[in-house]
């Protein structure tokens, strides 16, 4: 016997059950992720949205790791899940306030490797759960213009000159391994780590994200911002 209406009903029920369990699982992972974050990460990272008035220079100096309360805008899921299992340093002077790891020597100021600490690693299941939760943290939708950036072409040499000489980004950031400033995060991995919308928004107005950001606001309009991002797209391809 063939019952088309019964089969349709069965399919609908099966799909609904699948959807229910998928959503429940995701919610459970996200809840577990929050607990894991609170237990293991909140000593070094700001996880809950703080009062803006508390984001002082002293808070920045005391900070041990980057704030995570806007992680959902900032990070790419695949990168985050992988990095949490295999963490490695992204900012050569450490993830905290740069001067905490720098010493004065006769040759000039240098990073003291003894002052840098390694980030803890988690297992795959924990990484997925933490990522699920972090990606829900999106408190600044007004700062993000969804889908605003379309990758474009830029001649590599000119773009490198723009990054290093004209915009001066290289003073704080590296655009290749071993070359560039050490107090900002490396940028040759930026397009794998960060969402393009966040990169554009942060360049446009760093202090809107972090009131005591140490990144200057160069008052760039969209075209020069996208030009820099096109360069980031070129250099990310150099990664093995």
């Amino acid at each position: 016997m063939h019952y088309p209406r019964y089969n349709t009903l069965k399919r609908t029920v099966t799909f609904s059950l699948f959807l229910f369990f998928a959503v429940s699982l995701s919610a459970a992972e996200s809840a577990d992720g929050k607990q894991l974050l609170m237990d293991s990460c909140s000593n070094c990272h700001q996880i809950d949205m703080p009062n803006k008035a508390s984001l002082t220079l002293q808070e920045k100096i005391n900070r041990k790791g980057p704030p995570l309360y806007f992680a959902g805008h900032k990070y790419q899921q695949a990168w985050l899940e992988n990095w949490l299992q295999h963490p490695r340093r992204i900012t050569p002077s450490g993830g905290n306030y740069w001067a905490n790891a720098v010493v004065v020597t006769d040759e000039g100021d240098e990073i003291d490797e003894n002052k840098l600490t390694a980030h803890i690693a988690v297992n795959q299941q924990q990484a997925i759960a933490i990522t699920q939760y972090l990606l829900t943290l999106k408190p600044f939708p007004d700062l993000i213009r969804e889908g605003e950036y379309t990758p474009g072409k830029v001649p590599r040499m000119l773009a490198a000159k723009d990054f290093r000489k004209f915009k001066g980004c290289v003073a704080c950031h590296r655009d290749e391994e071993g070359f560039g400033g050490v107090t900002g995060p490396e940028l040759y991995t930026a397009m794998k780590r960060l969402t393009p919308e966040y990169i554009a928004s942060y360049i446009r107005n760093p202090t809107a994200w972090e009131p005591r950001s140490l990144m200057p606001n160069s008052h760039l309009n969209d075209a020069p911002i996208y030009k820099l991002m096109n360069y980031l797209n070129i250099i990310v391809e150099d990664l093995p």
Partner: peptide, 24 residues
């Protein structure tokens, strides 16, 4: 000064900041 300037100008202000090595 330490937060915003010393990265390039040096913790003692002598111009040998930790970011001074690869700039023109």
């Amino acid at each position: 000064y330490q937060a915003y300037c010393s990265q390039c100008h040096g913790l003692y202000g002598d111009g040998f900041g930790v970011n001074s090595y690869d700039i023109d």
